[in-house]
Structures are given as C-alpha cells and as structure tokens.
C-alpha cells in the first residue's frame, strides 16, 4: 500500500512536470529543453530575442 501511494505521488509529480514543460515550451517560455543557462528560447531572453532581432515576414 505504501509503495502504491509513493508511486502515485511520483507519477503525479512527473505528469505535472511534463504537462508544465509542454505548456511552457509551446508558449516559448520554457527553453528548448537543452537545459543550458543561456538558452535562447528561455523566458525574457527568448522574448527579447524575438522582439528585437529581425525575423522573417513570410508574407513579404
């Protein structure tokens, strides 16, 4: 029984981590998954990068 409870807690934590990771990635907040401190996709850095560096306007 104790084993089942511990497994349930670990599973829930893993599920939350994965779902949160996917949500953050899709929103462009979570980094690329490479785990590096200066991930260009991460948080403010990603936004800064995307706002200020010229990007493609595919409709041009």
């Amino acid at each position: 029984m104790i084993q089942t409870i511990i497994v349930a807690i670990i599973l829930a934590a893993a599920a939350v981590f994965v779902v949160r990771g996917i949500m953050r990635t899709v929103k462009g907040k979570g980094g690329c998954g490479c785990g590096c401190d200066n991930c260009p996709m991460k948080g403010d850095k990603g936004r800064l990068c995307n706002d200020s560096f010229p990007q493609i306007n595919v409709d041009d």
Partner: peptide, 18 residues
C-alpha cells in the same frame, strides 16, 4: 524534430504554417 524545434520554427518564421 522535437517539440522545442517545432516551436522555434514557428517563432522564427512567424507562422504555425511552417
């Protein structure tokens, strides 16, 4: 490619289409 790369392509091209 992985999900992060897909999102990077969307961000850089400006369109989900690509």
């Amino acid at each position: 490619p992985c999900l992060s790369t897909i999102v990077a392509i969307k961000n850089e091209s400006g369109k989900w289409k690509w």
